[in-house]
């Protein structure tokens, strides 16, 4: 890497700002303080309960949702989704304490790995959900490869109601608390893949999933 380009750009920035040296120590301390401040700025207000809002927003962006009572009901929910769309029962599934506890029907062939172009259905668990916009938050890890979110035509996401937050700012706090800090990729997913590049007509399934199905485990 050329240090001269780096210095030239930074020098030119400093010159533009009317400074020919590094920052004053006191200003630097103030800026450091701002960088560590995690207070939110403007949070849009809404009255609906987070779960209602979350479901509502997801459906507006063309996702489908189903609410179940507990982990024991997930397999049945996925089975009926697969049946309704006549999808294969070979599925790729991420690992998590919750997903590992699913008792899959005998007809299912479940694999835990990254997705390939031949996979049609993937199942993952979201780290969090954002009620404001109906957004799922998925983080990459050894148990949740990113390809599961993008390659298969059907992405099924499981989320517990307890993982729902009102705004993305609360999710940032959670992400910063993860062991190892931010994962390589944090995907905020709000609906299936789509494009309007041909005559402004919306078409789902541009490169990523055609369908996004969300299974919410309700809290009692």
């Amino acid at each position: 890497m050329s240090d001269s380009a780096r210095n030239a750009v930074l020098d030119s920035v400093r010159k533009a700002l009317g400074r020919d040296c590094e920052l004053d120590a006191s200003i630097e301390t103030a800026l450091d303080g701002r960088l560590n401040d995690s207070g939110p700025h403007v949070l849009p207000v809404f009255d609906e309960p987070p779960l209602e809002r979350f479901v509502d927003k997801l459906e507006t962006v063309h996702a489908t949702t189903v609410r179940v009572a507990g982990v024991a009901d997930i397999a049945a929910a996925i089975d009926s989704y697969i049946g309704a769309h006549r999808l294969p029962t070979n599925i790729v599934v991420a690992r998590s304490a919750l997903l590992d506890n699913i008792d899959w029907p005998a007809a299912f062939h479940v694999e835990h790995r990254g997705a390939t172009v031949d996979d049609v259905v993937s199942v993952t668990e979201a780290l969090a959900g954002i009620a404001e916009t109906g957004t799922l938050v998925c983080g990459s890890s050894e148990s949740h490869p990113t390809s599961l979110n993008f390659l298969p035509e059907n992405h099924v996401v499981v989320i517990s109601e307890s993982r729902l937050y009102k705004h993305m700012e609360e999710v940032w706090q959670e992400l910063r608390r993860l062991p190892g800090g931010l994962p390589r990729a944090v995907n905020l997913i709000t609906g299936p893949s789509k494009t309007a590049d041909v005559e402004q007509t919306i078409q789902y399934g541009a490169h990523g999933p055609r369908r996004l199905h969300v299974i919410i485990i309700e809290q009692h």
Partner: peptide, 9 residues
Amino acid sequence: MSSYTSIFT
């Protein structure tokens, strides 16, 4: 929100 907002680190 667009369908995908991704944060790469």
